[in-house]
Nucleic acid binder design. Sequence first.
DNA 1: GTCTATAAACAGATAGAC
DNA 2: GTCTATCTGTTTATAGAC
Lengths: 211, 211
Amino acid sequence: MATTREAILEAALRGFGKKGYDATGIREIAAGAGSNVASISYHFGGKEGLRAACAEHIVKLMGTVLASGRSEEPPLATPEAAEATLAALVRSLVRFLLLDPDGALVAGFMMREMAQPSTALDTIYEGLFEGAHARVCAIWSAVTGQPADAEAVRLAVFATIGQILYFHIARPVVNRRMEWPAIGEAEAAAITDTILRNLHARLAADRDQAS
Amino acid sequence: MATTREAILEAALRGFGKKGYDATGIREIAAGAGSNVASISYHFGGKEGLRAACAEHIVKLMGTVLASGRSEEPPLATPEAAEATLAALVRSLVRFLLLDPDGALVAGFMMREMAQPSTALDTIYEGLFEGAHARVCAIWSAVTGQPADAEAVRLAVFATIGQILYFHIARPVVNRRMEWPAIGEAEAAAITDTILRNLHARLAADRDQAS
DNA sequence: GTCTATAAACAGATAGAC
DNA sequence: GTCTATCTGTTTATAGAC
Protein backbone atom coordinates (compact mmCIF):
# COMPACT_ATOMS: atom_id res chain seq x y z
CA MET A 1 0.00 0.00 0.00
CA ALA A 2 1.33 3.38 -1.02
CA THR A 3 0.36 6.35 1.11
CA THR A 4 -0.19 9.76 -0.45
CA ARG A 5 3.01 10.94 1.16
CA GLU A 6 5.00 8.14 -0.50
CA ALA A 7 3.35 8.76 -3.86
CA ILE A 8 4.33 12.43 -3.71
CA LEU A 9 7.89 11.54 -2.72
CA GLU A 10 8.27 9.20 -5.67
CA ALA A 11 6.73 11.64 -8.12
CA ALA A 12 9.05 14.36 -6.83
CA LEU A 13 12.16 12.21 -7.22
CA ARG A 14 10.99 11.34 -10.72
CA GLY A 15 10.69 15.03 -11.60
CA PHE A 16 13.74 16.31 -9.73
CA GLY A 17 15.92 13.46 -10.98
CA LYS A 18 14.86 13.78 -14.60
CA LYS A 19 14.28 17.50 -15.14
CA GLY A 20 15.80 19.15 -12.09
CA TYR A 21 14.42 20.93 -9.05
CA ASP A 22 13.72 24.30 -10.65
CA ALA A 23 12.13 22.89 -13.78
CA THR A 24 9.70 20.69 -11.87
CA GLY A 25 6.53 22.38 -10.62
CA ILE A 26 4.59 21.28 -7.56
CA ARG A 27 1.42 20.99 -9.65
CA GLU A 28 3.17 18.52 -11.93
CA ILE A 29 4.40 16.54 -8.91
CA ALA A 30 0.93 16.50 -7.34
CA ALA A 31 -0.62 15.33 -10.61
CA GLY A 32 2.01 12.59 -10.96
CA ALA A 33 1.12 11.41 -7.46
CA GLY A 34 -2.61 11.54 -8.18
CA SER A 35 -3.03 14.29 -5.63
CA ASN A 36 -3.22 18.09 -5.49
CA VAL A 37 -0.91 21.05 -4.85
CA ALA A 38 -2.03 21.64 -1.27
CA SER A 39 -1.05 18.11 -0.23
CA ILE A 40 2.62 18.96 -0.77
CA SER A 41 2.56 21.81 1.71
CA TYR A 42 0.54 19.64 4.07
CA HIS A 43 2.93 16.68 4.04
CA PHE A 44 6.29 18.37 3.47
CA GLY A 45 5.78 22.01 4.40
CA GLY A 46 6.56 23.24 0.87
CA LYS A 47 8.73 22.50 -2.12
CA GLU A 48 12.00 22.90 -0.21
CA GLY A 49 10.82 20.40 2.39
CA LEU A 50 10.08 18.00 -0.44
CA ARG A 51 13.65 18.33 -1.68
CA ALA A 52 14.99 17.56 1.82
CA ALA A 53 12.67 14.55 2.08
CA CYS A 54 13.96 13.28 -1.29
CA ALA A 55 17.52 13.39 0.05
CA GLU A 56 16.55 11.37 3.12
CA HIS A 57 14.64 8.94 0.93
CA ILE A 58 17.71 8.44 -1.25
CA VAL A 59 19.94 7.80 1.76
CA LYS A 60 17.56 5.10 3.02
CA LEU A 61 17.07 3.58 -0.42
CA MET A 62 20.79 3.41 -1.22
CA GLY A 63 21.49 2.13 2.28
CA THR A 64 19.39 -0.94 1.60
CA VAL A 65 20.81 -1.34 -1.94
CA LEU A 66 24.39 -1.24 -0.65
CA ALA A 67 23.56 -3.46 2.33
CA SER A 68 22.08 -6.15 0.07
CA GLY A 69 25.18 -6.05 -2.12
CA ARG A 70 27.26 -6.54 0.99
CA SER A 71 25.11 -9.35 2.41
CA GLU A 72 27.67 -12.09 1.86
CA GLU A 73 30.44 -10.67 4.04
CA PRO A 74 33.09 -9.66 1.45
CA PRO A 75 36.32 -11.56 1.98
CA LEU A 76 39.34 -9.26 2.24
CA ALA A 77 41.74 -11.83 3.63
CA THR A 78 43.95 -11.82 0.53
CA PRO A 79 44.68 -9.01 -1.95
CA GLU A 80 43.15 -11.16 -4.70
CA ALA A 81 39.91 -11.56 -2.78
CA ALA A 82 39.78 -7.84 -2.03
CA GLU A 83 40.32 -7.07 -5.73
CA ALA A 84 37.43 -9.37 -6.63
CA THR A 85 35.24 -7.53 -4.13
CA LEU A 86 36.18 -4.22 -5.72
CA ALA A 87 35.36 -5.57 -9.18
CA ALA A 88 31.98 -6.81 -7.94
CA LEU A 89 31.22 -3.33 -6.60
CA VAL A 90 32.03 -1.78 -9.98
CA ARG A 91 29.81 -4.30 -11.74
CA SER A 92 26.81 -3.69 -9.52
CA LEU A 93 27.18 0.10 -9.56
CA VAL A 94 27.36 0.17 -13.37
CA ARG A 95 24.27 -2.00 -13.57
CA PHE A 96 22.37 0.13 -11.08
CA LEU A 97 23.22 3.44 -12.75
CA LEU A 98 22.86 2.37 -16.38
CA LEU A 99 20.16 -0.31 -16.32
CA ASP A 100 17.95 0.36 -13.30
CA PRO A 101 15.46 3.23 -13.86
CA ASP A 102 15.70 4.13 -10.16
CA GLY A 103 19.46 4.44 -10.53
CA ALA A 104 19.12 7.10 -13.19
CA LEU A 105 16.72 9.10 -11.01
CA VAL A 106 18.87 8.86 -7.90
CA ALA A 107 22.00 9.77 -9.85
CA GLY A 108 20.21 12.65 -11.58
CA PHE A 109 19.16 14.06 -8.24
CA MET A 110 22.66 13.74 -6.78
CA MET A 111 24.41 15.20 -9.84
CA ARG A 112 22.18 18.26 -9.81
CA GLU A 113 22.76 18.70 -6.10
CA MET A 114 26.50 18.68 -6.71
CA ALA A 115 26.16 21.29 -9.44
CA GLN A 116 23.97 23.47 -7.21
CA PRO A 117 24.45 22.29 -3.62
CA SER A 118 21.69 22.71 -1.02
CA THR A 119 21.25 21.22 2.42
CA ALA A 120 20.06 18.08 0.63
CA LEU A 121 23.65 17.44 -0.46
CA ASP A 122 24.79 17.55 3.16
CA THR A 123 22.20 14.91 4.00
CA ILE A 124 23.38 12.64 1.20
CA TYR A 125 27.06 13.25 1.92
CA GLU A 126 26.81 12.43 5.62
CA GLY A 127 24.31 9.61 5.20
CA LEU A 128 25.83 7.93 2.16
CA PHE A 129 28.94 9.28 0.39
CA GLU A 130 31.24 9.56 3.37
CA GLY A 131 30.76 6.04 4.66
CA ALA A 132 30.64 4.40 1.24
CA HIS A 133 33.80 6.14 0.06
CA ALA A 134 35.68 5.21 3.24
CA ARG A 135 34.58 1.58 2.89
CA VAL A 136 35.84 1.38 -0.69
CA CYS A 137 39.13 2.97 0.39
CA ALA A 138 39.52 0.20 2.97
CA ILE A 139 39.05 -2.46 0.30
CA TRP A 140 41.52 -0.66 -1.99
CA SER A 141 43.98 -0.67 0.88
CA ALA A 142 43.54 -4.41 1.29
CA VAL A 143 44.50 -4.86 -2.37
CA THR A 144 47.54 -2.60 -2.63
CA GLY A 145 48.81 -2.37 0.93
CA GLN A 146 48.61 1.42 0.87
CA PRO A 147 47.07 3.15 3.93
CA ALA A 148 43.29 3.45 3.47
CA ASP A 149 43.35 7.14 4.35
CA ALA A 150 46.24 8.02 2.02
CA GLU A 151 45.50 10.95 -0.29
CA ALA A 152 46.42 8.87 -3.34
CA VAL A 153 43.96 6.13 -2.35
CA ARG A 154 41.08 8.51 -1.74
CA LEU A 155 41.67 10.17 -5.11
CA ALA A 156 42.00 6.85 -6.92
CA VAL A 157 38.64 5.76 -5.52
CA PHE A 158 37.06 9.02 -6.69
CA ALA A 159 38.55 8.51 -10.15
CA THR A 160 37.05 5.02 -10.36
CA ILE A 161 33.62 6.18 -9.22
CA GLY A 162 33.92 9.08 -11.66
CA GLN A 163 34.32 6.77 -14.63
CA ILE A 164 31.16 4.92 -13.69
CA LEU A 165 29.08 8.03 -13.06
CA TYR A 166 30.34 9.71 -16.23
CA PHE A 167 28.91 6.97 -18.41
CA HIS A 168 25.56 7.80 -16.81
CA ILE A 169 25.94 11.58 -17.09
CA ALA A 170 27.21 11.65 -20.65
CA ARG A 171 24.81 8.98 -21.84
CA PRO A 172 23.42 10.96 -24.81
CA VAL A 173 26.93 11.77 -26.01
CA VAL A 174 28.25 8.26 -25.45
CA ASN A 175 25.30 6.68 -27.26
CA ARG A 176 25.77 8.95 -30.23
CA ARG A 177 29.51 8.45 -30.52
CA MET A 178 29.27 4.69 -29.95
CA GLU A 179 26.35 4.45 -32.38
CA TRP A 180 24.27 2.77 -29.71
CA PRO A 181 20.49 3.19 -29.87
CA ALA A 182 20.39 2.79 -26.08
CA ILE A 183 22.35 1.23 -23.22
CA GLY A 184 21.22 -2.34 -22.57
CA GLU A 185 22.90 -5.42 -21.16
CA ALA A 186 25.52 -5.69 -23.93
CA GLU A 187 26.47 -2.01 -23.79
CA ALA A 188 26.68 -2.04 -19.99
CA ALA A 189 28.96 -5.07 -20.23
CA ALA A 190 31.30 -3.24 -22.63
CA ILE A 191 31.43 -0.24 -20.30
CA THR A 192 32.07 -2.46 -17.29
CA ASP A 193 34.89 -4.12 -19.20
CA THR A 194 36.66 -0.82 -19.89
CA ILE A 195 36.35 0.37 -16.29
CA LEU A 196 37.56 -2.96 -14.89
CA ARG A 197 40.58 -2.92 -17.22
CA ASN A 198 41.47 0.52 -15.89
CA LEU A 199 40.93 -0.63 -12.32
CA HIS A 200 43.01 -3.79 -12.56
CA ALA A 201 45.83 -2.02 -14.39
CA ARG A 202 45.99 0.70 -11.74
CA LEU A 203 45.78 -1.73 -8.83
CA ALA A 204 48.64 -3.78 -10.28
CA ALA A 205 50.77 -0.65 -10.67
CA ASP A 206 50.04 0.46 -7.10
CA ARG A 207 50.85 -2.97 -5.75
CA ASP A 208 54.16 -3.11 -7.62
CA GLN A 209 55.12 0.28 -6.25
CA ALA A 210 54.36 -0.75 -2.67
CA SER A 211 56.69 -3.74 -2.84
CA MET B 1 35.34 46.71 -26.98
CA ALA B 2 32.41 44.58 -25.86
CA THR B 3 29.14 44.95 -27.72
CA THR B 4 25.84 44.61 -25.88
CA ARG B 5 25.28 41.33 -27.65
CA GLU B 6 28.58 39.94 -26.35
CA ALA B 7 27.93 41.21 -22.85
CA ILE B 8 24.56 39.42 -22.80
CA LEU B 9 26.14 36.23 -24.12
CA GLU B 10 28.76 36.21 -21.38
CA ALA B 11 26.26 37.02 -18.65
CA ALA B 12 24.02 34.22 -19.92
CA LEU B 13 26.84 31.66 -19.91
CA ARG B 14 27.70 32.80 -16.40
CA GLY B 15 24.13 32.18 -15.24
CA PHE B 16 23.40 29.03 -17.25
CA GLY B 17 26.77 27.50 -16.36
CA LYS B 18 26.51 28.22 -12.66
CA LYS B 19 22.81 27.90 -11.81
CA GLY B 20 21.30 26.24 -14.85
CA TYR B 21 19.00 27.36 -17.65
CA ASP B 22 15.71 27.20 -15.78
CA ALA B 23 17.00 28.87 -12.64
CA THR B 24 18.46 31.84 -14.50
CA GLY B 25 16.01 34.63 -15.39
CA ILE B 26 16.42 36.91 -18.37
CA ARG B 27 16.15 39.95 -16.04
CA GLU B 28 19.14 38.68 -14.10
CA ILE B 29 21.08 38.13 -17.33
CA ALA B 30 20.20 41.58 -18.64
CA ALA B 31 21.25 43.17 -15.36
CA GLY B 32 24.54 41.25 -15.41
CA ALA B 33 25.17 42.57 -18.90
CA GLY B 34 24.27 46.12 -17.87
CA SER B 35 21.27 46.03 -20.20
CA ASN B 36 17.54 45.35 -20.05
CA VAL B 37 15.12 42.48 -20.65
CA ALA B 38 13.98 43.62 -24.07
CA SER B 39 17.52 43.56 -25.44
CA ILE B 40 17.57 39.78 -25.12
CA SER B 41 14.57 39.31 -27.35
CA TYR B 42 15.99 41.92 -29.71
CA HIS B 43 19.41 40.27 -30.07
CA PHE B 44 18.56 36.60 -29.65
CA GLY B 45 14.84 36.29 -30.26
CA GLY B 46 14.12 35.08 -26.74
CA LYS B 47 15.61 32.97 -23.97
CA GLU B 48 15.79 29.80 -26.09
CA GLY B 49 17.71 31.65 -28.77
CA LEU B 50 20.14 32.75 -26.09
CA ARG B 51 20.73 29.14 -25.09
CA ALA B 52 21.46 28.23 -28.73
CA ALA B 53 23.83 31.19 -29.04
CA CYS B 54 25.65 30.04 -25.88
CA ALA B 55 26.23 26.64 -27.47
CA GLU B 56 27.71 28.22 -30.58
CA HIS B 57 29.82 30.51 -28.41
CA ILE B 58 31.19 27.52 -26.51
CA VAL B 59 32.06 25.70 -29.73
CA LYS B 60 34.06 28.69 -30.98
CA LEU B 61 35.70 29.31 -27.60
CA MET B 62 36.77 25.71 -27.12
CA GLY B 63 37.89 25.52 -30.73
CA THR B 64 40.48 28.21 -30.09
CA VAL B 65 41.46 26.70 -26.72
CA LEU B 66 42.06 23.29 -28.27
CA ALA B 67 43.79 24.80 -31.31
CA SER B 68 46.25 26.71 -29.11
CA GLY B 69 47.00 23.54 -27.14
CA ARG B 70 47.69 21.81 -30.44
CA SER B 71 49.83 24.62 -31.86
CA GLU B 72 53.08 22.73 -31.61
CA GLU B 73 52.14 19.89 -33.94
CA PRO B 74 51.97 16.92 -31.54
CA PRO B 75 54.51 14.27 -32.43
CA LEU B 76 52.95 10.84 -32.84
CA ALA B 77 55.87 9.16 -34.58
CA THR B 78 56.59 6.81 -31.70
CA PRO B 79 54.23 5.30 -29.12
CA GLU B 80 56.20 7.08 -26.40
CA ALA B 81 55.71 10.46 -28.07
CA ALA B 82 52.01 9.79 -28.56
CA GLU B 83 51.69 8.84 -24.89
CA ALA B 84 53.36 12.10 -23.90
CA THR B 85 50.87 13.99 -26.08
CA LEU B 86 48.00 12.21 -24.36
CA ALA B 87 49.42 13.09 -20.94
CA ALA B 88 49.76 16.73 -21.97
CA LEU B 89 46.11 16.78 -23.02
CA VAL B 90 45.05 15.42 -19.64
CA ARG B 91 47.16 18.03 -17.85
CA SER B 92 45.72 20.96 -19.79
CA LEU B 93 42.11 19.72 -19.54
CA VAL B 94 42.39 19.27 -15.76
CA ARG B 95 43.84 22.75 -15.44
CA PHE B 96 41.13 24.27 -17.63
CA LEU B 97 38.24 22.59 -15.82
CA LEU B 98 39.50 22.96 -12.25
CA LEU B 99 41.49 26.20 -12.26
CA ASP B 100 40.09 28.39 -15.06
CA PRO B 101 36.80 30.12 -14.12
CA ASP B 102 35.68 29.90 -17.76
CA GLY B 103 36.27 26.16 -17.67
CA ALA B 104 33.82 25.72 -14.82
CA LEU B 105 31.15 27.71 -16.67
CA VAL B 106 31.60 25.86 -19.96
CA ALA B 107 31.58 22.51 -18.19
CA GLY B 108 28.53 23.49 -16.15
CA PHE B 109 26.64 24.39 -19.31
CA MET B 110 27.62 21.16 -21.06
CA MET B 111 26.85 18.92 -18.06
CA ARG B 112 23.37 20.40 -17.70
CA GLU B 113 22.76 19.96 -21.41
CA MET B 114 23.68 16.29 -21.09
CA ALA B 115 21.30 15.87 -18.16
CA GLN B 116 18.51 17.63 -20.07
CA PRO B 117 19.43 17.66 -23.76
CA SER B 118 18.20 20.40 -26.08
CA THR B 119 19.27 21.37 -29.58
CA ALA B 120 22.20 23.15 -27.92
CA LEU B 121 23.72 19.74 -27.17
CA ASP B 122 23.55 18.83 -30.85
CA THR B 123 25.47 22.00 -31.66
CA ILE B 124 28.17 21.19 -29.12
CA TYR B 125 28.35 17.53 -30.09
CA GLU B 126 28.77 18.19 -33.79
CA GLY B 127 31.00 21.24 -33.37
CA LEU B 128 33.23 19.97 -30.60
CA PHE B 129 32.77 16.53 -28.99
CA GLU B 130 32.75 14.40 -32.11
CA GLY B 131 35.96 15.79 -33.59
CA ALA B 132 37.81 16.06 -30.29
CA HIS B 133 36.93 12.53 -29.24
CA ALA B 134 37.99 11.11 -32.62
CA ARG B 135 41.30 12.98 -32.41
CA VAL B 136 42.06 11.58 -28.97
CA CYS B 137 41.15 8.10 -30.21
CA ALA B 138 43.72 8.51 -32.98
CA ILE B 139 46.41 9.39 -30.46
CA TRP B 140 45.41 6.47 -28.26
CA SER B 141 45.74 4.25 -31.32
CA ALA B 142 49.25 5.57 -31.93
CA VAL B 143 50.19 4.49 -28.40
CA THR B 144 48.69 1.03 -28.25
CA GLY B 145 48.47 -0.04 -31.87
CA GLN B 146 44.74 -0.73 -31.55
CA PRO B 147 42.48 0.57 -34.36
CA ALA B 148 41.38 4.13 -33.59
CA ASP B 149 37.73 3.29 -34.18
CA ALA B 150 37.71 0.12 -32.07
CA GLU B 151 34.89 0.04 -29.55
CA ALA B 152 37.37 -0.57 -26.71
CA VAL B 153 39.40 2.52 -27.68
CA ARG B 154 36.39 4.80 -27.91
CA LEU B 155 35.18 3.62 -24.49
CA ALA B 156 38.64 3.95 -22.92
CA VAL B 157 38.82 7.56 -24.11
CA PHE B 158 35.39 8.27 -22.61
CA ALA B 159 36.52 6.72 -19.32
CA THR B 160 39.59 8.96 -19.22
CA ILE B 161 37.60 12.10 -19.99
CA GLY B 162 35.05 10.98 -17.41
CA GLN B 163 37.63 10.93 -14.64
CA ILE B 164 38.64 14.49 -15.43
CA LEU B 165 35.11 15.83 -15.68
CA TYR B 166 34.01 14.03 -12.53
CA PHE B 167 36.51 15.91 -10.41
CA HIS B 168 34.84 19.07 -11.68
CA ILE B 169 31.29 17.82 -11.19
CA ALA B 170 31.78 16.33 -7.75
CA ARG B 171 33.95 19.20 -6.53
CA PRO B 172 31.93 19.90 -3.35
CA VAL B 173 32.02 16.22 -2.39
CA VAL B 174 35.69 15.79 -3.28
CA ASN B 175 36.70 18.88 -1.33
CA ARG B 176 34.85 17.70 1.73
CA ARG B 177 36.22 14.17 1.67
CA MET B 178 39.77 15.31 0.89
CA GLU B 179 39.53 18.02 3.54
CA TRP B 180 40.48 20.61 0.93
CA PRO B 181 39.24 24.18 1.43
CA ALA B 182 39.31 24.62 -2.35
CA ILE B 183 41.02 23.27 -5.46
CA GLY B 184 44.20 25.21 -6.24
CA GLU B 185 47.45 24.37 -7.98
CA ALA B 186 48.51 21.72 -5.45
CA GLU B 187 45.14 19.97 -5.44
CA ALA B 188 44.92 20.01 -9.24
CA ALA B 189 48.39 18.47 -9.39
CA ALA B 190 47.33 15.64 -7.07
CA ILE B 191 44.26 14.98 -9.20
CA THR B 192 46.32 15.05 -12.40
CA ASP B 193 48.71 12.56 -10.84
CA THR B 194 45.95 10.06 -10.09
CA ILE B 195 44.44 10.32 -13.56
CA LEU B 196 47.82 10.00 -15.28
CA ARG B 197 48.64 6.91 -13.19
CA ASN B 198 45.39 5.33 -14.36
CA LEU B 199 46.09 6.36 -17.96
CA HIS B 200 49.65 5.03 -18.09
CA ALA B 201 48.70 1.78 -16.38
CA ARG B 202 45.89 1.16 -18.84
CA LEU B 203 47.97 2.10 -21.89
CA ALA B 204 50.70 -0.28 -20.79
CA ALA B 205 48.17 -3.08 -20.37
CA ASP B 206 46.64 -2.42 -23.80
CA ARG B 207 50.06 -2.33 -25.43
CA ASP B 208 51.07 -5.65 -23.83
CA GLN B 209 47.88 -7.25 -25.05
CA ALA B 210 48.43 -6.03 -28.61
CA SER B 211 51.84 -7.64 -28.80
C1' DG C 1 19.51 50.02 -30.66
C1' DT C 2 17.93 50.94 -26.03
C1' DC C 3 14.67 51.27 -22.60
C1' DT C 4 10.13 51.49 -19.68
C1' DA C 5 5.73 49.73 -18.93
C1' DT C 6 2.73 46.20 -19.32
C1' DA C 7 0.60 41.95 -20.76
C1' DA C 8 -0.31 37.02 -20.15
C1' DA C 9 1.07 32.90 -18.14
C1' DC C 10 3.24 30.76 -14.66
C1' DA C 11 5.13 29.70 -9.96
C1' DG C 12 4.53 28.34 -4.76
C1' DA C 13 1.72 28.99 -0.79
C1' DT C 14 -2.61 28.98 1.69
C1' DA C 15 -7.59 29.81 3.28
C1' DG C 16 -11.43 27.39 3.96
C1' DA C 17 -15.08 23.84 2.60
C1' DC C 18 -15.67 19.01 3.09
C1' DG D 1 -6.44 14.17 5.11
C1' DT D 2 -8.05 15.92 0.76
C1' DC D 3 -9.32 19.24 -2.42
C1' DT D 4 -10.79 23.75 -4.97
C1' DA D 5 -10.22 28.46 -5.42
C1' DT D 6 -7.53 32.20 -4.75
C1' DC D 7 -3.65 35.21 -3.33
C1' DT D 8 0.85 37.07 -4.31
C1' DG D 9 4.92 37.30 -6.67
C1' DT D 10 7.70 36.15 -10.69
C1' DT D 11 8.41 34.56 -15.28
C1' DT D 12 9.03 35.49 -20.51
C1' DA D 13 7.57 38.28 -24.16
C1' DT D 14 6.31 42.51 -26.32
C1' DA D 15 4.29 47.14 -27.45
C1' DG D 16 5.64 51.53 -28.01
C1' DA D 17 8.33 55.87 -26.62
C1' DC D 18 12.84 57.68 -27.43
